[in-house]
Design a protein around this nucleic acid. Structure first.
Length: 302
DNA sequence: AATTTTAGCAACCGCCCCATA
DNA sequence: CTATGGGGCGGTTGCTAAAAT
């Protein structure tokens, strides 16, 4: 029923007619949407504001891509989903011109089946086993990391081969795989590179200059003995990165200045992972490296 | 050709978060 | 402090077109 009591006969629901679409488009292009709840009245529509918003965002907006998903987009969805889970709106941000609803539908109707056909659990991206003991991961770093290690998928969109993982000794330097650096795959979208590490005591990274990139850390126990710190940067660049997320998500973005440094304050845990999220392929720094100072080993999943 | 089944997708529902009062 | 309402999100529904019988 209509949401609010007495507006019985006013509110239309269901599919939108071309006439309704036209009214909504005309109104929004002329006046913007402003407050959605007042849009239907102003646009002469017998709809609720939410319905108008949804129609605009998912279908009428001019910047939508439309058409079927490309291989590249599919790969990106799988990669990001592996890290973020069913956070469709977050995932859609990696796919310009696509909506969360579209991504969700594509996942449910296509990708899920493909993963299952490949013997992968679409929720965890791990191999399906007959005896799925898997209790839900209670936000515990270790179990997620371990599953990461045992069943890797590519986090780089160009490389779909099952994880060839390198274990790097302490005090070494990593470079991004050239397939990643040179790919045109990103094309304005962002992507995620994952660093996994065990027994970290001091991890530092830099982008070698002024390139812009961000960090996304999932299940990384930052704030619990491992906090990003940027005080190794030159003085004029010591500002803290903008924190753009909720506490549990730990997303930091740094724009246009060099930074480095990430130390764990105490001991506390023995493994974790950090994901670097590149916001724009044009700005992926070719010289980016990850410096491992005193860490037992570091696994690069690519 | 007619009917049933399935698949895909647009839209809805309820919940949550946040701003404002 | 609580109340209210808008916007955003994820899960789900239900309609339609395509595929199967």
């Amino acid at each position: 029923m209509g949401h609010h009591c007495c507006s019985k006969q006013k509110v239309k629901r269901g599919l939108w007619s071309p006439e309704e679409d036209e009214k909504l488009v005309k109104h929004i292009t002329a006046h913007g949407h402003g407050c959605w709840s007042s849009v239907p009245k102003l646009a002469g529509l017998q709809r609720c504001g939410k319905s108008c918003r949804l129609r605009w965002i998912n279908y009428l907006r001019p910047d939508l891509k439309r058409g079927s998903f490309t291989e590249q987009e599919e790969r990106t969805i799988i990669d990001v989903h592996r890290i973020l889970g069913n956070r469709w709106a977050q995932i859609a941000k990696h796919l310009p011109g696509r909506t969360d609803n579209e991504v969700k539908n594509f996942w449910n109707s296509v990708i899920k089946k493909k993963l299952i056909a490949q013997g992968l659990d679409p929720n965890t991206h791990n191999l399906l086993s007959p005896h799925q003991t898997k209790a839900k991961n209670n936000g515990n770093t270790i179990s997620k990391l371990n599953s990461h290690h045992d069943q890797s998928g590519s986090v780089f969109t160009m490389d779909t081969s099952p994880g060839n993982k390198e274990i790097i000794d302490a005090k070494s330097t990593l470079s991004l795989p050239s397939s990643y650096i040179n790919s045109s795959a990103l094309n304005g979208a962002s992507t995620i590179a994952t660093f996994e590490f065990q027994n970290p005591s001091n991890l530092a990274w830099t982008d070698h200059g002024t390139h812009r990139f961000g960090i996304l850390a999932e299940n990384c126990m930052w704030g619990n003995g491992f906090e990003p710190c940027f005080d190794h940067a030159p003085p004029q660049q010591q500002q803290q990165p903008e924190k753009v997320s909720t506490d549990q998500e730990k997303v930091y973005r740094v724009s246009n200045h060099e930074f480095n440094g990430c130390q764990n304050a105490e001991n506390g845990f023995d493994s974790s992972s950090i994901d670097f999220e590149f916001m724009d392929s044009a700005l992926v720094p070719p010289g980016m490296y990850c410096n491992v100072n005193s860490m037992d080993q570091l696994a690069w999943d690519c």
